[in-house]
């Protein structure tokens, strides 16, 4: 009877695994690049039949996205179970999360418990998120003050000028309009409509060009975030 546990067999099995992985890697790249090219060409050129294929690919992507949500929830569960098992610092928060995860699943999945859904949403989720927004606004004010203390250069002056413009926009306008220079600036909308918008568009054009080259790197197979290289 053949022995399947010797070093030679292990080497063959390892080489086989590597070969399969390489084949999958190439197959992944071919599928990703092919799908990417179809979607890209379909976006620019209205070729007969291309739109249908594009839509089909999008539908598949949405289905994969839906499955990914389930996998993601599994990941969330696994991370917090591991944290709870190891009794790491902050494990109590993991327990709370898992408890409410089970409650949410029960309420969403059990017939007859639908009236409880709005309570979950309006009574817990939205107030918690609103509280976080409130914390965020305080955090930002603290960060701004900290920035003024640590940076005393041109950027700090620019920041103060921005604060001034924002304050002017939200209610101090009538008071500030009595200052002649400010009144003319406000009427011309030089700061808000020309300088700020121009700057924002400049940044967005830079981001768009970065998006284009990142997409091209993936279409050319240079970057393969979808596995193995």
């Amino acid at each position: 009877m053949a022995c399947y546990s010797g070093p030679a067999w292990r080497r063959i099995s390892q080489n086989g695994r590597l070969a399969v992985r390489r084949i999958f890697s190439i197959l992944n790249a071919v599928i990703a690049i092919g799908a990417g090219l179809i979607v890209l060409i379909g976006y620019f050129v209205d070729v007969q039949g291309m739109m249908e294929v594009r839509l089909l690919l999008f539908q598949w992507a949405v289905i994969v996205g839906g499955v990914a949500v389930l996998v993601g929830i599994g990941n969330l569960l696994s991370v917090h179970l591991a944290k709870l098992r190891s009794r790491k610092k902050g494990a109590i928060y993991s327990l709370v999360l898992l408890f409410f995860m089970v409650i949410s699943l029960l309420i969403s999945g059990t017939a007859g418990l639908e009236p409880l859904k709005p309570i979950l949403m309006d009574g817990i989720l939205i107030p918690v998120e609103v509280s976080l927004m409130a914390i965020l606004s305080v955090t930002l004010i603290v960060a701004a003050v900290r920035m003024l203390r640590s940076r005393t250069d041109l950027s700090a002056i620019l920041f103060l000028a921005t604060v001034f413009v924002v304050l002017a926009g939200i209610g101090f306008r009538s008071f500030l309009a009595q200052i002649p220079v400010f009144n003319e600036l406000a009427q011309s909308q030089l700061v808000t409509n020309i300088l700020a918008l121009g700057g924002a568009r400049g940044i967005l054009i830079g981001v768009a060009l970065g998006t284009l080259t990142t997409g091209l790197r993936i279409l050319l197979g240079v970057d393969r975030p979808y596995g193995g290289k």
Partner: peptide, 22 residues
């Protein structure tokens, strides 16, 4: 995103602005 860049500008020492991210 522009709102996040504005926050990062105020809250971090050396934020990467615009296309520097790429």
């Amino acid at each position: 995103s522009l709102p996040a860049q504005a926050v990062l500008y105020a809250a971090t020492q050396e934020p990467l602005i615009g296309e520097e991210l790429f």
